[in-house]
Nucleic acid binder design. Structure first.
Lengths: 344, 344
DNA sequence: TCTTAGCACTCAACGATGGAGAGTGCTAAC
DNA sequence: GTTAGCACTCTCCATCGTTGAGTGCTAAGA
């Protein structure tokens, strides 16, 4: 069977209607609300065809039709038009994000808030991974007799600070000297690139402070390992409660588990995203079982051509794809611009 | 009417049964399961009395009884015995918390996780307020041509670091000099005590860097203001989904709003807690409307005799008060010990 | 050949009906 | 003061029409 113009229009109408009402759509509704110039009987025939082709489904005989994953996929790929986002929304994004440029974490926290607020879905923003950062400076500060503060500064201003206990020294000048050597040796490396050779050099030069250096390097490694779970921000948890598909507590649980275990969510987002712009995963296309009735729209932001992280939206399969897509696209583009401007 | 021994036993039995089953308790159930040595008819008479006194309620004629807020209050005040927590639980707490002593934030995050895990309710841990901290050191580090990193170190190792833009200077030695002056002037003050006089002194001594100093002091103030919302950790969100009282999405929403707006939750906890140990607020005793069907058990932890913060449990009014109380009490006591040991 | 009006059919949703069961209050006997 | 017995109440649950939205099919019309 072929997908002719009228079938496309009918499919489009069904999806539009279903997305707003969340109720199965009948042939009469289509004939009345979307004037395609034909009667409900004709629509009925088209719908039977669309069902045969797998684009729509019938929850039970004698109910209206509901789009299938395949139907949404066709819609997303060929039918929908991404709207330009409105001037006021644009302004809102500009203001909110610019205000929070200072701290990387605040920036992405705000991003998730803004995105969820503008779309009424769940929004997820993944901070740039520490492992992608380039070491800029390491500074040791004496806290008191036995404690030293280690501050790690990266090119993107990501800072990890940690208190390390050491009885070896707390002399300001000694610590400064150690800081300088560490900085000199490690500057310019990405955290994940730091290798045996460099470490050996450091151990050699700072032979007298081996224990202390070891603690500091362990700290670095910790920062690497912990970074993943720490750096996911989720906004709009409450929004999902308004969606009729989550009126059922058991379904809700699936999602809340994800929110609770941020690392899983992060992984899903990372895996889904592709290098080139916007990605949309619909229902069963998602690998993770728990979100087979959800869709994810996400996009990556970049600095210097390198992909730094992902921002996305998670909502029911019955989602306002055009608006959500525009939002995600716009916000990641703007994030890239901001980062470029600020850290270049 | 008087509260005699048998009435106490009946009330105790009703509460015990209702807490485990979540179903209204009938006279026969009491007579069968809790051998009080009398028949169901006698229990029935006692229950009628207890209802008249306001300790129990009947959802509708011909259903069993349910404890009222007043009933729980009587139970908590006079009937329940707080159990000693088990050795394995004790060990679990010791290990989990000790492992996370390094970072204040990790410690309290873990506290909320441990507490929620051991009780199956929602657990909330409030980090020591920054405003209670005493300034120990302020350090300025040059990041690049235009940016300076401000690190604030307090007596309890709480650190706030922020990037400040300034074109005035980025000379290492100048910054060090400024750091020293700031540290000297502010050391020993609690953040909330920093007053006009001190600030004027600082402005006077650092007249040439007024703009920079102003930025830094604004940073301090920010740290103060933001600290509240940042420093609440909530564990066990998923636990509440298992409670039958939250099978209804609308009720659930009330709680999730609280979790989303952590500042409110924090405030509730602060207001509820009293100086002297454990506090229990039952149902309607809570001021906040949204949790009139919840109870809060919380206690404060201290350092040096000063109350630093609060740790608590939030669950349905139908709660395992004895176990939860013991847990909260034990964990706050242990937190106090840990802090004493570590920061004294 | 495509479109449409008409009609019989299906099925979820809703409300009414009527036991079954759990629990109560009251009374009278112990 | 306690208890057995009994009538009564009310929720819960399953059953059963009724209603209404929607379908598929057929036959007539363009």
């Amino acid at each position: 069977m072929q997908m002719d113009e009228r079938k496309k229009k009918v499919l489009h109408a069904i999806i539009q209607d279903y997305v707003t009402t969340a109720e199965p759509v009948g042939s009469r509704t289509i004939a009345r609300k979307y004037n395609l110039g034909v009667s409900s009987a004709t629509i009925r025939n088209e719908m039977a065809d669309l069902e045969e082709m797998g684009y729509i489904e019938q929850p039970h005989t004698s109910s209206g039709r509901v789009p299938s994953d395949k139907g949404y996929r066709y819609y997303v790929d060929f039918l929908m038009k991404k709207p330009r986002i409105s001037g006021s929304e644009e302004q809102y994004i500009y203001i909110q994000l610019k205000e929070n440029m200072q701290h990387m974490e605040n920036l992405f926290k705000k991003t998730s808030e803004v995105l969820s607020h503008l779309t009424s879905y769940l929004a997820v923003a993944v901070c740039p991974m520490v492992s992608e950062s380039v070491v800029k400076q390491i500074q040791l500060l004496p806290l008191d007799q036995e404690k030293i503060l280690v501050v790690l500064i990266s090119d993107k201003g990501i800072i990890d600070s940690k208190v390390v206990s050491s009885t070896i020294t707390n002399d300001v000048d000694t610590l400064r000297a150690i800081s300088d050597i560490l900085t000199e040796k490690l500057r310019g490396y990405r955290l994940q690139e730091i290798n045996r050779t460099v470490l050996n050099e450091i151990y050699f030069e700072l032979a007298g402070y081996k224990r202390l250096v070891k603690l500091i390097l362990e700290d670095l490694e910790d920062a690497l390992n912990n970074s993943k779970e720490k750096r996911v921000f989720i906004g709009g948890t409450l929004n999902i409660l308004s969606q009729p598909e989550f009126k059922d507590v058991e379904r809700l649980r699936n999602l809340l588990v994800l929110i609770d275990e941020q690392s899983v969510l992060c992984k899903i987002l990372q895996e889904t995203s592709s290098e080139k712009g916007l990605t949309i995963s619909i229902g069963g296309e998602n690998k993770y079982q728990g979100i087979h009735n959800c869709s994810i729209i996400n996009a990556t932001y970049k600095l210097d051509g390198r992909v730094l992280g992902t921002v996305g939206i998670l909502g029911p399969t019955r989602m306002m794809y055009p608006k959500a897509s525009s939002m995600v696209e716009f916000i990641t583009k703007y994030l890239s611009d901001l980062l470029e401007e600020h850290y270049k």
